[in-house]
Amino acid sequence: MLLNKLLEHKKKEIVKKWFEIIASTYPNDTAGFLKKEKDSFANPVGSTNIQGLGAVLDELINGPDRETITSFLDPIIRIRAVQKFTPSEAVSFTISLKKIIRDTLAREIVEQNLEKDILEFESKIDDLCLIAFDIFMGCREQIYKYKANHVKDRTLKLLQKADLLCEVPDMDSDITPRNF
């Protein structure tokens, strides 16, 4: 398909613009840092995003397979799920890809009459957004689980320690119900 070829061709430019969008969701100083620092250990947020976005775009063009795309999108959303973003702020960058592609390929879309293909591609981006939301919710549930477990474990240990629990004792086989 011609559109896919064009996307492949402009991939680098598109990913760069897409990354700009993500970076712009942070305060100015931070956006600069995310873009500038190339060492992935000094800048895990920047490097995770740039790698993830490239892989996601690849998969959108060539797939997309839901599982594969989830695995590429997950690290990006996982970071946003612990930062100060509302759910919509955390996933909205996926939708920005539509505008980026339309802007980047503006001339080609008209000249090559690609409107139908673009709409088709955009529905893949809609799916991407839904997947992003699923991942986001999964992450949030994980975080709530840690909070809940912490309280639960701690309380349980305290009760056990204070000898306040009267749990069912382990039973030998000769007193299992069958033998009564």
Binding site: T25, S92, S96, L97
Partner: peptide, 20 residues
């Protein structure tokens, strides 16, 4: 051109923090 809402209109989030 087909009349589709612009992508950025679909979800209105201004995620640029103010430069203060």
């Amino acid at each position: 051109m087909v009349d589709v809402p612009k992508p950025e209109e679909l979800i209105k989030v201004d995620n640029k923090p103010p430069a203060k």
